[in-house]
Design a protein around this nucleic acid. Structure first.
Length: 545
RNA sequence: GCGCCCGUAGCUCAAUUGGACAGAGCGCUGGCCUCCGGAGCCAGAGGCUAAGGGUUCAAAUCCCUUCGGGCGUACCA
């Protein structure tokens, strides 16, 4: 429908010999009195051709060739908006399309099967996932869903490092807890991993191996067992949240295959790396960086940026045409170096989309709970899911723009879980399921012999619903294009709200069989849109609650 | 000090990416079940969009300044 008008306006502009340069928008107005669709084309062009926007609008309207059986009327309003009203017939066609496409309704090929990678979570196996990781996981998974729905060939990837100093400290933390269990006197350093989970792992080792590990080094079985248990736990939690991964990419492989060294050599060859005070530096200042950055320490160990650059180089070499990185706000300083490194290596960094989400502040009993993997006192993602369930967790994380700080009041989420916004949506779905079942019992099938007569849907509430339902494909596409899932939650909230209103004003199942069939069709279409939306958000679509 | 994000109803957040009268949820006030699910519906109160200036037909949105909050600013990841 948007496309339909866009084409009509373009031909009108051509016949008037007007430029199409500042791209006009075609939008659904907030106010119903402003029509079903509006365009600012006259106002956008008025400046460049130095003409009155209202007069320009009427010129454009006079050249529009619109089918009178689809378009109700056209008006020029305000400073020069052109507003369009469509006939109900137009919308009823859309309704028929929803019923035909079912669970496929809303999918598109807009992405052109573009090879796309979404990298998210990417937490190292040093401790349980935090609530912050949860936001990252849900955001990444949902964006991946959106990209799939809009015709992208998506790979979901988790990048991790199980080597290095952090992992050594982890192994040693387990070792010391193990020795504690043997009643040996140990001084547990403050900067070691304090969490209870370390003691659990030590206990497990004691149970499986007895006391013979007394003299084992930290990098051996202690580290290995810790990594294994923690990673299993991470994967289990991610599964509970409904997130899926295609690839777990180990940073170590970048060293083993020499790709890290290749990057250093390449940067040197290009003149973007140099030696200074025993370290190797990257010339970040050539790419708007504040200062040059160390990529190999004087000890010979690389800093984190070097493997990150090598990893992203591999993303390009693996043929990804769109690369999406989901990062927490604490990584805000790292990605510009990676981007600069990729530029230095000659890659098109326009293909890399970095989404930085802000922190989750967890509040319990009115007090802010600080979340740090090393501290003992933190709420894990697993505990959060235990308390409120995966649907609520996902929905809460998706309700807000990723750029804004998120306050998650645990007590509130649990206490008010009965009036949680996610239930409002799911309730609408369950209610429709119940109505459809009732209709079946009453002997009115949705699969009527000659199909429902949709033109019987004339009430304002019904038409409003159909219009909203018809927006679904556009909404999915714009959420995908802008990487903003939160707008889908808002849309679905509107759908549920309109349905609840409709339900209160109009009875679906009555003695009037044709009307009942038409209304059941509308219910079915609403259920479809809700269920498809839930599928993208990764929340369940309950038949009963 | 510098960089990024944020500041919108009492609280938590939206606002179709620059569009017409800034909207939801929670909380508050008052209504609605003989009837397909009341986890619902309807009505009301609540705002100089932190402050000031600028850009234009149009600014919560873009630019500048100030104030306030968060995250960074390593030869840690």
């Amino acid at each position: 429908m948007r496309q339909y008008l866009q084409e009509k306006v373009e031909t009108a502009l051509r016949s008037l010999n007007l430029p199409d340069r500042p791209k006009p928008t075609f939008e659904r107005p907030k106010q119903a009195e402003h029509g079903d669709l509006t365009t600012n084309v006259a106002m956008v062009l008025a400046r460049s051709v130095k003409r009155n926007p209202t007069k320009l609008a009427s010129d454009i309207v006079s050249r529009l060739e619109l089918e009178s059986d689809l378009v109700e009327k056209v008006e020029i309003a305000g400073p020069g908006f052109i507003n369009f009203w469509f006939k109900d017939k137009f919308y009823l066609q859309q309704l028929r399309e929803i019923l035909e496409k079912g669970s496929r309704y809303g999918r598109s090929e807009a992405g052109g099967n573009k090879k796309t990678q979404v990298e998210f979570v990417s937490a190292n196996p040093t401790g349980p996932l935090t609530v912050g990781h949860g936001r990252n996981a849900v955001l990444g998974d949902t964006i991946a869903n959106l990209l799939e729905w809009t015709g992208h060939d998506v790979t979901r990837e988790y990048y991790y490092n199980n080597a290095g100093r952090q992992m050594r400290v982890l192994g040693d933390s387990v070792r010391l807890r193990y020795l504690e269990l043997l009643d040996e006197p140990v001084a547990f350093p403050e900067d070691y991993y304090q969490g209870e989970y370390i003691k659990d792992i030590a206990r497990h080792l004691l149970a499986s191996h007895g006391t013979v590990l007394r003299k084992e080094p930290p990098e051996g079985i202690f580290k290995e067992r810790a990594e294994e248990e923690i990673f299993n736990d991470i994967k289990k939690i991610l599964k509970r949240l409904g997130t899926k991964f295609d690839v777990f990419y180990n940073e170590r492989s970048l060293y083993e295959t020499g790709k890290v060294q290749e990057v250093v050599d390449e940067l040197r060859r290009l003149g973007y790396a140099y030696d200074h005070e025993g370290a190797v530096w990257f010339r970040a200042t050539s790419f708007q960086g504040e200062k040059d950055k160390v990529i190999v320490k004087s000890s010979g160990e690389p800093t984190y940026r070097l493997p990150d650059i090598a990893y992203h180089r591999e993303k390009f070499r693996r043929g990804f045409e769109l690369i999406v990185d989901i990062l927490g706000a604490d990584h805000i300083a790292t990605y510009p170096d990676v981007i600069a490194g990729l530029k230095a290596l000659g890659f098109d960094t326009e293909k890399v989309k970095v989404l930085i989400h802000q922190f989750v502040t967890l509040v319990r009993n009115g007090e802010v709970v600080k979340m740090s993997t090393r501290k003992a006192n933190f709420v894990t993602l697993a505990e959060l899911i235990d308390e409120v369930g995966p649907d609520v967790v996902r929905y809460f994380f998706l309700m807000r723009s990723h750029m804004s700080h998120l306050n998650f009041d645990l007590g509130l989420a649990k206490e008010q879980s009965e009036q949680n916004p996610v239930y409002y949506l799911q309730y609408a779905h369950a209610r429709i399921a119940s109505i459809l079942k009732y209709a079946e019992i009453e002997g009115v099938s949705t699969r009527a012999v000659s199909g429902p007569r949709l033109e019987l849907l004339t009430e304002a509430e019904a038409i409003a619903m159909v219009k909203k339902l018809a927006e679904f494909p556009d909404t999915v596409e714009s959420c995908s294009f802008s990487f903003e899932p939160h707008r889908l939650t808002e849309y679905l909230h509107d759908v549920a709200g309109l349905f609840h209103k409709f339900y209160h004003v109009h009875r679906v199942v009555t003695d009037n069989k044709p009307l009942t069939c038409a209304r059941l069709a509308l219910c079915q279409a609403t259920k479809t849109v809700l269920a498809n939306g839930f599928a993208i958000l990764g929340i369940s679509a309950p038949e009963t609650m």
